[in-house]
Design a protein around this nucleic acid. Sequence first.
DNA 1: TAGATTGTTAATCGATTAACAATC
DNA 2: TAGATTGTTAATCGATTAACAATC
Lengths: 216, 216
Amino acid sequence: MGYKKIKKTEKAIPISVIKRLPIYHRYLNKLIDRDVEHISSKQLAEKLGVTASQIRQDLSHFGTFGQRGYGYRVNDLAKAIGEILGVNNKLHMVLVGAGNLGGAIINYPNFSKRGFIITAIFDNDPAKVGTKIAGCIVLSIDSLREYLESHAIDIGILAIPAEDTYEIVKIFEECNIKGLWNFAPVSLNLENVLVENVHISESLMTLAYQIKEMDE
Amino acid sequence: MGYKKIKKTEKAIPISVIKRLPIYHRYLNKLIDRDVEHISSKQLAEKLGVTASQIRQDLSHFGTFGQRGYGYRVNDLAKAIGEILGVNNKLHMVLVGAGNLGGAIINYPNFSKRGFIITAIFDNDPAKVGTKIAGCIVLSIDSLREYLESHAIDIGILAIPAEDTYEIVKIFEECNIKGLWNFAPVSLNLENVLVENVHISESLMTLAYQIKEMDE
DNA sequence: TAGATTGTTAATCGATTAACAATC
DNA sequence: TAGATTGTTAATCGATTAACAATC
């Protein structure tokens, strides 16, 4: 509970707004690839399954980006949202867990292009230590703390089983990590660390529920 | 847009409530493993980072599950939520994309225990066709349509690149799939298919934004 | 019984949508 | 100019929190 820091800007931006920005950003970049020059909030809304009003309202938190009567220049808007999100800021990350999921994350497309740099991988399986995944060497989990103490790491990625989570999270907390991107099937809520829980199996259960309801 | 079907029960349950149920469910099962017999909404709320009021409000959509002055029997509540979510219903799924992410999904722990059955894997890489992943054979993407037409499949899992998504989604739509669990970096919004978009890279960008804000 | 905690109603808060003047 | 579409304010809608009587 409790704010870590009061923002300087007038009002805090709702997290629901922030969560939509990357979605707008991705689609705008797709439009750039297709050489689309401009788009109205209405057209964008239809493509993304939101309302035009919501897009304009969301953007208004950050400034004015369009032209009345014309819409938005795709290039300009993509760039503006990219800047808001800080897509060009470099963030250093370490991955814990060199299993299937860890491999999938590290191989995720355009990851490094977006400024996300994985500098080391850690695993507790001696058979994996010393091997390379996507050009990055796997280190022993025993060296995680020392590594964090001697490198400036922003984000820890947890791709580990639920039962190992507590122990690993403790190390990250004690080393003052800024954020954790958590794929472990555990809901993390930490006092001093920003956490993004990727609730993979929860999302499947939500889908399953909706299918069940549809069938009556 | 538009509702597919009006629910028979008095009021539709908000999706925000449904999304929290699997989180409660998972933690209750953890408590069962630890032989915890009962828990109050207050205790549960503290552990999960929500309010006690919200937990009681959420549960009240489905009935009454606790005892005043005592709290909830962990076993009973876990079972009740499990039934609401339909965790014992079998759902048949096919996975499209036998890459790292596909492998991670199919190896996700307790997947099949929860009634989620992956019956086939499809890929467009001839080198992968015929191989086995987690005991399941990889078929050619060319046979997806025929497979869907001849088997009762509830959910399609998309673990494919963005550029292949449109083509594959079309097949699923035409074969009247009930739901799609989408890991491709595209926002899907379909008229007649329930979609759960797992916005992996969007969630990282959200975390990155928050870290940037924290640093001012 | 006295203390605790639910289930539920009411109050608050926040987010989405609608509407429209401004203006390109 | 006329038409289109923004940016923004106001209205609506929905979700969360607070409060408390019911009751174990």
